[in-house]
Design a protein around this nucleic acid. Structure first.
Lengths: 150, 150
DNA sequence: AGATGCGTTGAGAACAGTTCTCAACCGTGA
DNA sequence: TCACGGTTGAGAACTGTTCTCAACGCATCT
């Protein structure tokens, strides 16, 4: 379980593809990359409204970043769709279902082997997978136990 | 990779919980359980409209069945939300990204071990995971190759 | 520096999917 | 038979997402 390396140098990715890295895109990227937990599009839009970033731009940029593989879509305990960065180097999220904090891990060894077995057994050609693990982080567990509530 | 046992006897599950198993619920359940591929709520509603099942009822029932763990939410290649039965006995879906056919497998051994390692490394108490594997089934691959198109 | 062109942006309209509301309905138990 | 509680269908309401289009920003060319 090696730590996946964090995503640096998004600008290089954009430059390489000839896509402009605008002020708005930087702000949106910073929002997700700077957060230590998954955030919804609505949260990003609300937070960046003051900086003059339109909601449509947030939607467009999240799609763009997702297509580039710079943002991964996950969901919290209530099934709410959130996005989190950076999944580069192929890692998987361990998400706190309460506070949405995300810890990334590289569980690929485990899945690769499974995929090979599946391909052999079913004849499918496997092109990907989606693995999220859900838990409660130590902090949230502590709070919960203090509360004595669910 | 053992085959997960199919879900029998939904009625018993309902009875046990004291939830009425109505005509509409049966129809909706039959729709998903009878399909060999994941289906959207819209598809279910369209298909059952003729049988006098309202759209709201389909939504309500899908939520109900999901809560009971009788229906699992997955997504196809385009990110469309679909539901598939039966996930009982804890299995995972291998989904054809083209035709949405679902083959279920029991990859739990693999994930359980990973979860234990994660819990130890992060201090999270793990309560669940979500694993989907995507592929193209042999049939769709054949069609695609015949077409010579992507 | 000024002109040109192309992709990006923001505001708001449009749209789609989902949830809510409420009166009618159904089945069960008395 | 009657009363009751949960379920249902139709449509309204709501929410999140996408589309439209004119204005803008930035790079390039003159």
């Amino acid at each position: 379980m090696t730590d996946p390396q964090p995503t640096h140098d998004i600008e290089a990715v954009f430059r390489e593809k000839g896509i402009p890295f605008t002020r708005q895109r930087r702000l949106i990227w910073d929002f997700f990359a700077g957060a230590d937990r998954a955030a919804t599009i609505t949260e990003a839009a609300d937070s960046l409204r003051g900086d003059g970033v339109g909601q449509a731009t947030v939607y467009r940029t999240v799609i763009l970043l997702s297509d580039l593989g710079l943002l991964a879509r996950v969901q919290d305990r209530r099934g709410e769709i959130c996005y989190t960065a950076p999944p580069i180097g192929h890692s998987h999220p361990l998400i706190c279902g309460v506070c949405r904090r995300v810890v990334r891990f590289d569980g690929d060894g485990d899945v690769k082997e499974l995929e090979a077995r599946l391909a052999a057994a079913t004849g499918f050609s496997i092109y990907g997978h989606h693995l999220e693990v859900y838990g409660i982080c130590p902090e949230c567990r502590a709070v919960k136990e203090g509360d004595r509530g669910e």
